[in-house]
């Protein structure tokens, strides 16, 4: 910025030194592959493995040919449900826990926080297996538990049923990741000055009114950010379904989401062999979905929710 002009006239080697290594790796292994994928989606391969330009025909197949479009729309719809469940369950619970944790002079607050956040640290794969075991009718631990609290008749092999496997998986994921909205919202709540809360108490509002009228509006930007993080993570999810239900996302693709569809398309499964170019096309569509979400957030949601200077 403020360097002597003698340095500025020479080639700025130091900038290159600082920037080049990181940038090189980032561009080679992130930017280029992404662009290359978008490009690859426009090609097809013939029987000999020869690639040729095919325009948008991959996308036509994917969106219009029943053999491809059915799984695609199924996965997209499932993924949307997956996201909606997170928004309706994970974020409200996170908000609720954060509100409790930020009660003034609460003892053990740190301990609760640390423990509740613990599952978030573990690998999704591990968590998937843990719940697979816990919900397994063979082991019967959940069934036994439900009987002990008088709800035994409601037990079912939830993960194995078409009607409930996706919801169950989503709830497992909610259980694991509730710590993230909790932490971020908690931090936002801590940054609200105490005086503001005191002022609203003096103004006569009870705890609920203070939360609703003062705290919530002030943490709205954080909730917006949590939502977009959830969106990106959900439409990029793969591990949980893969670990619990395999690449086929059974039963009968009822738990198929974009990540598993992408994996199957790319690597093939059972009778169908994998296709690099079709895989690239699916990835491109995922990219577009995420891009639209992020853009909506940046240009609509974030604009509306001004950050209030506290």
């Amino acid at each position: 910025m403020s360097q002597p002009s003698s340095i500025q006239r020479r080639f700025p080697w130091h900038i290159l030194f600082f920037l080049a290594p990181g940038l090189l790796i980032y561009v080679t292994f992130s930017v280029y592959p992404l662009l290359d994928t978008l490009w690859l989606g426009l090609f097809q391969e013939d029987a000999t493995g020869q690639r040729f330009f095919a325009g948008i025909s991959n996308y036509q197949t994917l969106l219009l040919d029943a053999a491809w479009s059915e799984p695609f729309w199924n996965a997209l719809w499932n993924n949307t449900k997956f996201f909606i469940i997170h928004m309706l369950v994970q974020n409200p619970i996170g908000l609720f826990l954060a509100a409790l944790l930020s009660s003034p002079r609460l003892r053990l607050s740190n301990t609760y926080r640390t423990l509740i956040f613990m599952p978030t640290m573990l690998s999704v794969v591990i968590i998937g297996f843990v719940w697979q075991l816990l919900l397994s009718p063979i082991w019967g631990i959940s069934e036994g538990f439900l009987y002990s609290i008088g709800l035994g008749q409601y037990f079912d092999a939830w993960l194995g049923k078409e009607s409930s496997s996706l919801i169950t998986l989503a709830l497992i994921s909610v259980w694991q990741f509730v710590g993230i909205p909790m932490m971020l919202i908690y931090a936002a709540m801590l940054s609200i000055p105490d005086d503001l809360i005191d002022a609203s108490v003096v103004d006569g509002s009870n705890a609920w009114q203070t939360f609703w009228n003062i705290k919530l509006p002030l943490i709205l930007p954080t909730i917006g950010m949590v939502s977009i993080l959830t969106f990106v993570a959900n439409f990029n999810a793969f591990e949980l379904v893969y670990a619990v239900k395999g690449a086929l996302a059974g039963p009968n693709f009822s738990s198929d989401i974009m990540g598993t569809l992408f994996y199957r398309t790319f690597f093939g499964f059972q009778l169908q062999s994998g296709s690099i170019t079709m895989g690239a096309a699916v990835a491109t569509l995922m990219f577009l979905i995420i891009l639209v979400g992020v853009m909506l957030y940046l240009f609509v949601v974030q604009r509306r929710m001004k950050r209030f200077q506290l």
């Binding site: 005191d198 002022a199 108490v201 003096v202 103004d203 006569g204 002030l218 209030f308 200077q309 506290l310």
Partner: peptide
């Protein structure tokens, strides 16, 4: 008694104005 029923009003050093409310709303909130 809770603060609101004591017949008191407080002015804070930091002013503690609700940042997301207009002046009118700040004053009328109570």
């Amino acid at each position: 008694l809770p603060p609101a029923q004591r017949g008191i009003a407080m002015v804070f050093q930091s002013y503690a104005l609700y940042p997301h409310m207009t002046v009118f709303k700040n004053m009328s909130y109570g």
